[in-house]
């Protein structure tokens, strides 16, 4: 067993878990945050993407024990109360989802992508950066539109605010 201690969406979480526990299972079953999804369980689909210490990673391919001491942000940690994060708002506005299963991973991927490209994004870059996310409704077109819109909205809102939001 491993004693893990991490910050999840600003809250300190301590637990004793089996060493083999994957971060995604820890988040869903121990912390009760089921917004992070298990899609393929083979690090292909990206439904499980969360941010660990500010970087997007696939939580199905990381042990909870590896994340101990880290700061984790999940899809539940993006909105500010009732106010959606700009990327969430852009997905809603642009209908960037169909069944919605891949959406949490898409949004976590998008917020990370926008953070890494503060100068802005173009369509080709967004499509290349979505390499690690699969949407089996094949709804990519509106997902790309939503990410481009969010990127624009966030750079307009100013670097300071965009940084905070990401």
């Amino acid at each position: 067993m491993s004693d893990v201690s991490l910050t999840v969406n600003g809250r300190n979480v301590k637990a004793s878990v089996e060493d083999r526990t994957l971060l995604v299972h820890f988040l869903r079953e121990h912390v009760g945050l089921t917004g992070t999804h298990v899609g393929c369980d083979t690090s292909q689909c990206g439904a499980c993407i969360v941010h660990v210490d500010g970087k997007a990673v696939k939580s199905c391919t990381m042990l909870a024990a590896q994340a101990s001491g880290s700061t984790v942000v999940t899809i539940e940690g993006l909105a500010n109360g009732a106010e959606l994060h700009p990327v969430q708002a852009a997905f809603k506005e642009n209908h960037g989802l169909q069944c919605g299963f891949c959406t949490p991973g898409m949004i976590m991927s998008a917020t990370d992508m926008i953070r890494r490209y503060p100068e802005g994004l173009d369509e080709a870059t967004v499509r290349a950066e979505l390499e690690g996310n699969i949407c089996r409704c094949t709804g990519y077109h509106n997902i790309v539109k939503a990410i481009l819109a969010a990127s624009q909205a966030m750079s307009k809102a100013g670097k300071g605010k965009a940084k905070k939001a990401a």
Partner: peptide, 9 residues
């Protein structure tokens, strides 16, 4: 290599 998330780890 791989995808952005794989490259982070």
């Amino acid at each position: 290599i791989g995808d952005p998330q794989v490259r982070h780890k």
